[in-house]
Every structure is written in structure tokens, then in C-alpha cells.
Design a protein around this nucleic acid. Sequence first.
DNA 1: CATGAATGAGGTTTCATTCAT
DNA 2: AATGAATGAAACCTCATTCAT
Lengths: 208, 208, 208, 208
Amino acid sequence: MTDQSVIKRNRRPAARPAEILTAALDLFAEKGFSATRMEDVARRAGLSKGAVYLYFTDKTALLTAIVETTIANELKEVGARASLAPGPVAPVITEAARHISRRLTETRLPEILKLIIAESGAHPELASLYFDHAISVALPLFEGLIRRGVATGEFRPVEPAYTARSLAGGFIFSALWRSVFEPIGKPALDIPAFAEHHITLILKGLAP
Amino acid sequence: MTDQSVIKRNRRPAARPAEILTAALDLFAEKGFSATRMEDVARRAGLSKGAVYLYFTDKTALLTAIVETTIANELKEVGARASLAPGPVAPVITEAARHISRRLTETRLPEILKLIIAESGAHPELASLYFDHAISVALPLFEGLIRRGVATGEFRPVEPAYTARSLAGGFIFSALWRSVFEPIGKPALDIPAFAEHHITLILKGLAP
Amino acid sequence: MTDQSVIKRNRRPAARPAEILTAALDLFAEKGFSATRMEDVARRAGLSKGAVYLYFTDKTALLTAIVETTIANELKEVGARASLAPGPVAPVITEAARHISRRLTETRLPEILKLIIAESGAHPELASLYFDHAISVALPLFEGLIRRGVATGEFRPVEPAYTARSLAGGFIFSALWRSVFEPIGKPALDIPAFAEHHITLILKGLAP
Amino acid sequence: MTDQSVIKRNRRPAARPAEILTAALDLFAEKGFSATRMEDVARRAGLSKGAVYLYFTDKTALLTAIVETTIANELKEVGARASLAPGPVAPVITEAARHISRRLTETRLPEILKLIIAESGAHPELASLYFDHAISVALPLFEGLIRRGVATGEFRPVEPAYTARSLAGGFIFSALWRSVFEPIGKPALDIPAFAEHHITLILKGLAP
DNA sequence: CATGAATGAGGTTTCATTCAT
DNA sequence: AATGAATGAAACCTCATTCAT
């Protein structure tokens, strides 16, 4: 029945690009972009060197595609969320932050963030892309919520922009812990538990 | 008589290694480790290609030296600090955090952190080194202070390890904002101001 | 009913080889043999990459076939011509030369000559083939006529071999002008007019 | 004394570019541009693969340099020649034509012409360069002389442009015979003898 | 017959490192 | 100590050719 998965090296065009990107991300995250050879990517995707070039023009195209896919997903998720619902903002902030925390655990976001950081020098477009489509969307979202909380007296008067960054810091910390330190054998971080603690800490810090 | 100023920067062998490392860090931070050519480093340090090899065995040795120097400074600073002084810990935490904030502004720590992150795949020893000598020193230091605060009732009961990480997150955030986003033209972050805000927010969050 | 025009250029297997060769010559002449990709040839012939290999074993086979076809036509034309008719040879020379001139205008001979020249290093067989079947047929033909003219006193005593080459030079010049310089935008040469002038010049030069 | 020529692989910077170009031309002429591997060029120049790139940025740069050098020499030679001396032009034409003939024998012009023709598709700039700096200089020179001869009655009324091309044809013929057919084992052409014959034939053809 | 995905040899180019001077 | 010419391994990418469908 599943004999198709046994077949060695034939026709499965539709799945190829995603398979290649997964292989590429595995390796980029593991050894870095430039230490990864195209042939390694191909091999890990179960293809020959040349085949990768049937789907991506360039080694750089792999990187770009990884980041663009991530951004696309990011937006898809965040899009619905804006949450202009009236009432206290704390639960909204909590929920949004939990969502990010979940994405850190359930997706490869930590590795992708590491990759974007790592390549920001050689490939500034990527960092720019991520900034424009993810960071400059997420931070203002939190800023807006906090501002509202301050306005309604739910929070003490704080600088929303800085507060949003304090919140974000926890997630950056989590992402890098996972993608940088865990792979080299340092103790794992329980991201959901830390996230809960972090959210609570920040919200308590906002109490009037 | 003014020969020392005439010969300008020609013969001061003792300063060479540091000059080379500065040049290397400039370039590594700007374009990434592997996109930086040894010749560029040499040129920027005012030397010929071959001369760099008189001081460093390897391209990797440059990276290692940069990180090791940073760690050495880190330790030198932090070492004296342990601060087992009795009394409330909040001021101690504040001071320690301000110190880190200052280092982020006054040294090239942001770039070095980016570099360590970027190369953690290809050069795990570096990340390990930094972890062992900086992170696994600094985090426990904060954890200890927080634990004491909890014990004395100065703080509400929190998980010190997580709290220390929330604090650290702000600094990671600052470092990466500076080293990743500012170089690509995104708005600058006022690190000291953010640090003050961040410290206050966390400490308020710890209030019993 | 109009199915033959509807299906346009789809199924006419018999014509395929010629279509492929035309496509190949177009491209070889335009960008050179090695810069031409088999896929381009296929595309231009309205076929898939693999289909070309149903008709030709090799990329080189395309080249060979082009040259062999040309030679075959050359011979077919020249064959009948030998013209051992008695009487003055000038008109015979004129007619033969005009014939070549016509072939330069009406066939793709200029491009094929360029191709043979271009590939004479990598594919000496082709140049050899062309030499043996075209050049070493045509030159002796002119030499014979000139020799006869000299023998009968119609021409002054000249070296027939050299004279034939002077005549041939005009045609080589025409062919290369057309295939090398006109495609890069240099002024066109009126080959028939030049041929007339050239023939006259040479024949006048032969006057006793 | 000449021990320096025995030395294997050391410092001879000044001569290198010329050595490399000679090696390149040897191989380009022998096997064609694209069939020549950079490593072959290097090896023949007595260098390693990488060393060639210390002197030329590109494989194409070799080609360009060869053609540009040729053009420079061409111009240097022709420059002085303009020959506006009064009196019969036939001796001037003869001398100029002999000069070209000599260059065909004494320099590598035949091979370079073959190369330009061969690469005119892939590297039209080269053909253009040669056209603009050599052909469109030489042809008008002959045209002018012939026009003068016609004006003075030294020649019969002819079309100078065509006549110049008839003259040029002999040299193109010689060049290609030498570079295309002789290398594949066809009988050698005595270029000086043919040139004399050709010049005489053309001049006789111009007699009033 | 026809397709076009897949292969992999082969070539260009880069650059860390060496070493004669 | 310093130089910079030279080396050659390594990696990207192309494309002729094959072959399952």
C-alpha cells in the first residue's frame, strides 16, 4: 500500500520543494548557511545535486524561500488576531503571547530566527523582510494593547514600546536558547512554562 | 623627534594582535564570518595577507580570540561583583543589570553575541565557551539574588531561574536589535532607556 | 476537416529531423555550438528535450548532420556542372561563380561556414569533411578551367591554383561578412553585386 | 648564468600576463574557446589553476585581452602607413598588402581571426571591436587608394569598396586556410607567394 | 513516439594558507 | 617581521544525457 514511499528516486514533483526546504533548514540550522553544501541538501532530500536546481535557482533562493514561507505563516496566524474586543487587555496579551510561545515550540521558528540573525550581514534583505513583515507587525500589536491598558487604567503608566520589547525579549531568549544552546548540549528550556512565568511577571509589572 | 607620530601606525608589533582582532570583528559583524576574507582583515588592519598568519594560526583563531577576549573582560567585570552584601537585593539587581546595559552600549558585545549565535552551528565550541563562562555565570548570579529576595520576602514567590531569564531577555533583545536591525537601517533602540524601563518593569513584577 | 491546419505542426514525424536541424542551425549560428543548449534546440523545434534524442544520438550529431546535409547539397549542385564544353572558359567561370554567390544568398551556407570554422578545433572531422567534399572539389574545378584558359591563350599565364584561391577569397569574404558582421549590426554587403564586381575584376586580371 | 630559467615555479610577475595569453591562444586556437579549460591554460603557462586569476578576472578576459592586444598591434602598424604620398598608388597598395601578408605569416593573426569568427556569436563585442578598430580602418584605407587611382586614370573605373573587398578576400582566405585547414593536415598554403600572385591579379584587374 | 524529472560529470571560480624572498 | 605570488582544495552551478512513465 505505502509502496510509494519505498520507491527510490522517482516522480514526486509536488512534494519536492517542501522536502528540499526542510532538508535545507535542517542543515542550515545545524551547520550554518555557508557551511552547508548544496549536495548535502540534495542528499538529505533524497535527490541528486542537480535536482535541487530544478526547483530553486540558487543556494540563496533556499534561504529566501525558508524565510518567506515562515513570514507567510506568521502573517496568516497573526492576521486574524488583532483583537479590538473591548474589555481588559491582559487576557488578550496573554493569549497572543501564548500563541507565540506555541509557535516557538511547534514550528521551527527558533532555528529560522537564528538563521536570519546569522545571515543578517550577508543577506540583509532577509532580516529586513522579517523585520517588516513580522517584527514591525507584532511589536505594534502589543504596544497597542498595552497603550489601551494604560488608557483604561488597567495598567500603570508605562512606555508601551519598551514594555512590548520586554515581552518580546522573553521570546527571543527562548528561541535562541533552543536553537543555539540546546543543540550544543546545554540544559533544555521548558518554553511553555517559562512563557507562562514571563507573561505573569510582565503583567504583574504592569499592575497599577 | 616626532618620529613616533611620523611613522604613524607602522611599527608597533605589540598592538598588532588587537588591531587585527578589531579589524576582524568589524568585518565579521558586517558581512559574517565566512563572507569575510582573510585578505580583507589584513587590509583593514593595515597589513599584508601573510602577516595575519604571524599572529593567528587560522581564520578560526580570529573568531576564537575575539570571543575569548570578550569572555575574559566579562569575567573581569563580573567577578568582583558577586555582591553578597546583606540588605535588599533590588538595588543590587538594578546595578548589575545597568552594568550589562552599559556593556551593551560601550563595548562591541552586541556584535559579538550576534557572531556567536551565527557561528554556533559551525563553531559550537564558541557558543559553549560563551555559555560556560558568561551565561552560566550571569544567570545564576541573578537567580541567587532573586532567590534571596524571595527568601527575605522582598519579592513574591517566583521561579528565580525563569525570572533571571526574563531579565536576560531584555538584554538579548537589545543586543540583537543593535547588531541585526540597526545596521540594516531600522530605527535605533535607546538601550539605556529601555534598560531602565525593563529593570523597573521586572522589579515591579516581583513585588510581593 | 481542417484538422491538418488545426493540429498545425504537431504530428509530422517525417519532417522532424529537418525541423530539428533548422532549429539547431539557427541557434548554433546565433550563439555558437557550445553555448547552445539541447533544450533550446528542442524548444525551438517545438519538441521536448528528450525527443531530440529520438532522432539524433548526440549534440555533435546535430552538427555533423548539418554539415553533411550541406555537403550533399553542394555536391548535388556542383556535380552536374563540370562543364567540359569546349570554347572560352570565362563564361563558365562566371556562371560557376554566380552559382556560388547565389548559394551564399539563398542558403544558409554563410552560417554553416562560420560554424565549420568555429568548430574546426573541437570537431576537426567536420572541417575535414567539408574540405574533402566541397573545397577540394570546387577549387580544382576552377583551377581546371583556368588552366584551360591559360592553355588556349584566353588568359595570361597565371598560377591556376592561386587564381582559384583569389576567386574563392571573395566568397569567403562574403560569407563571413554576412555571418559574422551583419549579425552584430555592421552594414550589409550586397553579395550579388559584389560577386559580379569580383568576377569581373578577376577575369580582367586574367586578360592576356 | 641563465639559472633563472631553470627555476621551477617562482617569481616572474612581469612576464606572466603575456605567458598566460600565449598559452591561452595556443589552446583556444587548437581546441576552441569553450573546449579549453582554465586549468589547461594554467598548466601550459606553467602555473596552477588559481594563479591565472591573479592576472585575469575571467576566462573571457583572456579572450578579450588577446583580441585587444592584437588590435593594438594592428593599429600601431597601420597608423604610420596612411600614405598620402603623391604619385601612382599601385606601389602603395602593393606595399600595404604585402604588409598584411607578412603579418599573417609572422604573427598569430590567422588564429586570432579564427577565434574572433568562432566566438562572434557568444562574444559579439570581440567581433565588434575587431571590426571597428581593424577592418573599418583597413578597408577604407584601400578604398581611398583605389579611389585615387581611379581618379588619376591609373585604374579603370571600379567600385573602390568592392575592389578593396576583393583584395581583402585573399587575406581572409589565407588566414583561414592557415588556421583552419593546415592544422587538420591539409596542404599548406605559401602565403607570401599567394599574396604576390593575388596582388598582381587584382592590380592587373584594375588596369584601365 | 514523447515527455520532462532526474542524474552526475565537469568546469569555473574563490580563498585560506604557504613560502620564497 | 613582512610581503604577496602561488597553490589547490572545495563548492557552486550547468547541461548533456537517461529513463520511468
